[in-house]
């Protein structure tokens, strides 16, 4: 619980910084902190595999992709027109309302939840067997999806000869 008390504020602070900072690169670095904090929370929840996969995919790949996109689109300089959209108040109200509803639901259903549980000890081999057994169809679909999205991303972002304005 002590570790949770450290990790949860860190993660939320990373997320908050990511949406509030003015400098876009700082936002990307802050979101990397939030991702790492989430990975540690996964470890805290005994989900070792998911935690390491989270670091590998999010900190190692998604954050880097974001950073590349920021530099390729020259958005590392703070624009003079401001960083928040014209309708920022509406967005904020919607987000606050969503949080209020979610928190109300979570706090309201407290009695229905099981309290203490034996800690599940899951070996990676079990996850492997599950992936190759019961979840083999989703695995194949994800493989196709990843291949398709890779090709799609390359085609979308590829330099078009003469076509660009």
């Amino acid at each position: 619980m002590v570790i949770f008390a450290i990790l949860a504020p860190l993660t939320v602070a990373g997320g908050l910084a990511a949406v509030m900072l003015r400098n876009t690169v700082h936002c990307a670095l802050a979101v990397a902190v939030a991702f790492a904090g989430l990975a540690l929370l996964f470890l805290q929840l005994n989900a070792q595999f998911a935690g390491f996969a989270q670091i590998l995919v999010y900190v190692g790949a998604v954050a880097i992709l974001v950073v590349f996109a920021i530099l390729l689109t020259r958005s590392s300089e703070t624009p003079a027109t401001g960083v928040f959209s014209k309708t920022w108040l509406t967005g904020l109200v919607i987000a606050a309302a969503v949080f209020a509803v979610l928190a109300w639901a979570v706090l309201g259903s407290r009695t229905a939840l099981p309290h203490e549980q034996i800690e599940p000890q899951i070996a990676v081999a079990q996850i492997g067997y599950a992936l190759m057994g019961r979840y083999v169809l989703p695995l194949e679909i994800v493989a196709v999806l990843l291949t398709a999205s890779m090709i799609g991303a390359v085609i979308v972002a590829m330099y078009e000869k003469g076509g660009a304005k």
Binding site: A8, T11, V12, G15, L16, A18, V19, T24, C27, A28, A34, L38, L41, V66, A69, I70, T73, S75, P79, T81, G82, V83, F84, S85, T87, W88, T90, G91, L92, I94, A95, A96, V98, F99, L102, A103, V106
Partner: peptide
């Protein structure tokens, strides 16, 4: 914590001007 993070992400998606953010 998850709800808070979701709300923060939603706020970011709705209020920022930059598509990457």
């Amino acid at each position: 914590v998850a709800a808070l993070l979701f709300a923060v992400g939603l706020a970011g998606a709705l209020t920022r001007r930059n598509a990457i953010l």
